[in-house]
Amino acid sequence: MSGLLGIGLESEAQSWQERALCAETDPEAFFPEKGGSTREAKKICTGCEVKAECLEYALSNDERFGIWGGLSERERRRLRRRAV
């Protein structure tokens, strides 16, 4: 039974990623070089319907690099500190 549950959760996780606007764009925009601009990625995130799911995923999985849910690594760190 737990195997079926795992499959359902996995396909649910994939579904938000498949609907993400970033899936249709250049992934390099979401992982800029140190000191590089995050503006292009954040602009794409602004209109994305799964922005909240993306941010939740990044926070839950301690993603340390890239733009997730419209926030940079530094912004996510600040958000985590405020939540504690």
Score class of each variant (00 low, 15 high):
Ser37Val: 00
Leu4Tyr: 15
Glu49Tyr: 03
Ile7Glu: 13
Glu12Trp: 15
Leu9Ser: 03
Pro27His: 05
Leu59Ser: 01
Thr38Ser: 14
Ser72Gly: 09
Glu12Tyr: 13
Val50Thr: 06
Arg74Met: 02
Glu63His: 04
Trp68Leu: 02
Phe65Thr: 08
Ala23Cys: 06
Pro32Ser: 06
Trp68Asn: 01
Ser60Gly: 07
Lys51Thr: 05
Gly70Gln: 09
Glu63Gly: 00
Gly3Gln: 11
Asn61Pro: 07
Arg77Asp: 14
Glu12Pro: 05
Ala41Trp: 04
Glu73Ile: 04
Ile67Gln: 11
Gln14Val: 07
Cys54Ser: 09
Cys45Ile: 01
Arg81His: 02
Glu18Asp: 15
Glu18Asn: 13
Asn61His: 04
Ser37Arg: 11
Leu4Ser: 13
Met1Lys: 10
Val50Gln: 07
Arg82Glu: 15
Arg64His: 10
Val84Arg: 00
Glu18Arg: 13
Ala23Lys: 08
Ile7Trp: 14
Glu73Met: 09
Leu79Val: 04
Trp68Ala: 00
Ala58Asp: 06
Arg74Phe: 00
Arg77Ile: 14
Ala13Gly: 08
Arg80Met: 07
Glu75Arg: 00
Glu24Arg: 10
Asp26Gln: 04
Cys48Asn: 03
Thr38Lys: 12
Arg81Thr: 02
Lys42Pro: 07
Gln17Val: 00
Lys43His: 13
Arg82Asn: 12
Gly69Val: 02
Ser37Asn: 04
Trp68Val: 06
Val50Gly: 02
Glu49Gly: 07
Lys43Val: 11
Glu10Ser: 01
Arg81Met: 00
Glu53His: 04
Glu49Thr: 02
Lys43Glu: 15
Glu10Phe: 13
Leu21Thr: 01
Asn61Thr: 02
Gly35Ser: 14
Ala29Ile: 12
Pro27Ile: 00
